[in-house]
Amino acid sequence: MSTLPRPSTIFLAAITTLVAVLLYSPLFVPIVSSFFIISHGNVDWSSPTLSTYVALAGNHDILAALRTTLVVGVCTVILSVVSGTLLALYYHGRHSGRSILQFIIFLPFLMPPIISGLALLIFFREIGLERSLLTVVIGHTVFVLAIVYRTVLMRLQSMSRTLVEASYDLGANGWQTFWRIILPNLSSAMVGGAILAFALSFDETMITILVTGTQSTLPVRLWAMMRLGFSPDINALVALILMFTVLLCVLAARFLIPRQMATERN
């Protein structure tokens, strides 16, 4: 229910629409144009086609990059969800050093990726770790940890303290309370955090370029392709990545935004 007078409502709606169009229309251009042939740098609007996607499916480099991306993503998710949850529990338990810990967790996420990437690169060189998928996974985990940590911590903090107290009160020990009360109540936040972590890892480019060995992930591959010129399959690839990322975000939102409490039936 709006309490604003009508003219201002219309004005607000107009501004909102304008901003939305300006922000989001660039996202739709590659999706739409991926269904058309590009000749001499111009899009040929007359004949819609799926040929760019067919070309993409036949591109072994791209398929290999996709596989790499998925492997890195899954490993990153597992590592970051486990460590992010543990760190959130540590912070929530009011142990010592919690503010410094939180600062360190957020730092790589807030710093420019090129700085994080370079720092990692130097670190790996110093400890003699060869650049490989392992270093990429470590880089991604360091980067996305803040998101998982924050998501889980927020859920922990919104969880009623009395749930834990009730569990002890009913005779449970710490271990039972953790597995049967705390973890189940965190699970949807962990799933939401995992999806966000996967989406971030899927798109991550800068750190990956710096710390990867011979294998490249999808965004890195895309980066390399673009340096050679704008080929039609780039549109298709961008469109696919875009749609996949949006899908992940929608999914994450489902887990993270509290659902309406089920109302009483009958």
Partner: peptide, 29 residues
């Protein structure tokens, strides 16, 4: 320790476990 005391509490906000059914809650102890 709290989990060894032969007392049980009915909390002001009830503190029911939201992820368990009524019988899961009641049987927890």
């Amino acid at each position: 320790p709290i989990n060894k005391r032969p007392f049980n509490t009915v909390f002001q906000d009830y503190a029911l476990f939201p992820h368990m059914t009524v019988s899961g809650n009641v049987g927890y102890g």
